[in-house]
């Protein structure tokens, strides 16, 4: 069984990101595998072990993403591909992933529900559409039964159980698996696992980011005494006008 997991390389979720001249100032910020992608990777490692298959991780990014890719190898992927390009937008990234997947014919393509930088929630759906495959998002549980996967998917106010035959694409979230932390052996072996760098295919740009800004800040908090709850109700009605 050939599994592909696509990971994005994003600022640590604890980081405060300053913005300078309309751009995020990422100097000195540490980078990680995006949280949802880490869930996808953890489940992919388990499924690879179960099926004695092969797990490839893929990232579209410049050379600075390699430590993040090595971390995925340390967690358990067998080999890696880096498409040597700035991830311009979801369509660009999806086109790169689809180009590779067309040659490789993976049985299963797992991604995160969304990246934590673009937060588009788009790459999986675009890849699926480009490859003519079904796409299950957000996928909370995934078990294989031969050639068919049984999955739990979140829906508004609940969940549904779905079945789909391989191959397909899924965008994963918890509790699909527990995040895995690389152990010493993993870290050592990751250094020598193959990481192939490929050049991007040409793709038209459909979008352009003009600038980033901080979201509007709240004015300072108004504290209300706990013995004067009526005042909170009054403020919510008369000042904030939300009741």
């Amino acid at each position: 069984m050939k599994i592909l997991t696509c990971i994005s390389h994003v600022p640590d979720t604890n980081a405060k990101i300053p913005f300078k001249d309309g751009q995020p100032d990422l100097n000195g910020i540490s980078f990680v595998i995006a949280p949802y992608d880490d869930f996808a990777l953890a489940r992919a490692v388990e499924l690879r072990d179960q099926t004695k298959g092969k797990l490839t991780v893929l990232n579209v990014g410049l050379a600075d993403t390699e430590p993040t890719i090595r971390k995925a190898l340390a967690i358990g992927a067998d080999d890696a591909i880096r498409v040597n390009a700035h991830p311009h937008d979801a369509f660009y990234v999806a086109s790169q992933i689809a180009a590779i997947a067309k040659q490789e014919n993976y049985d299963l393509i797992l991604m995160g529900r969304e990246s934590s930088d673009f937060n588009g929630g788009q790459v999986h759906g675009m890849v699926a559409e480009m490859l003519g495959l079904p796409c299950v998002v957000p996928c909370m549980k995934l078990d294989l039964n031969g050639n068919v996967a049984v999955m739990q998917r979140e829906i508004e106010g609940g969940k549904e159980i779905v079945e789909v035959a391989l191959p397909f694409v899924a965008g994963c979230q918890e509790p699909i698996a527990e995040w895995k932390i690389p152990n010493m052996r993993g870290i050592m072996s990751a250094k020598t696992k193959p990481l192939k760098v490929v050049e991007p295919v040409a793709v038209e740009n459909y979008t352009r980011i003009i600038k980033y800004e901080m979201p509007p800040q709240r004015s300072s908090v108004k504290m209300i005494d706990k013995d004067n709850i009526g005042e909170l109700v009054r403020l919510l009605r008369e000042e904030a006008k939300v009741l």
């Binding site: 369509f91 759906g125 675009m126 829906i155 459909y206 979008t207």
Partner: peptide
């Protein structure tokens, strides 16, 4: 935004060769 519509948006984007913006 909704769970099913969010899943459809990227597919619509590819079908219509459109620029997509979510959120």
């Amino acid at each position: 935004k909704s769970i099913n519509a969010d899943g459809a948006v990227p597919m619509i984007g590819v079908k219509l060769k459109a620029s997509v913006a979510t959120n």
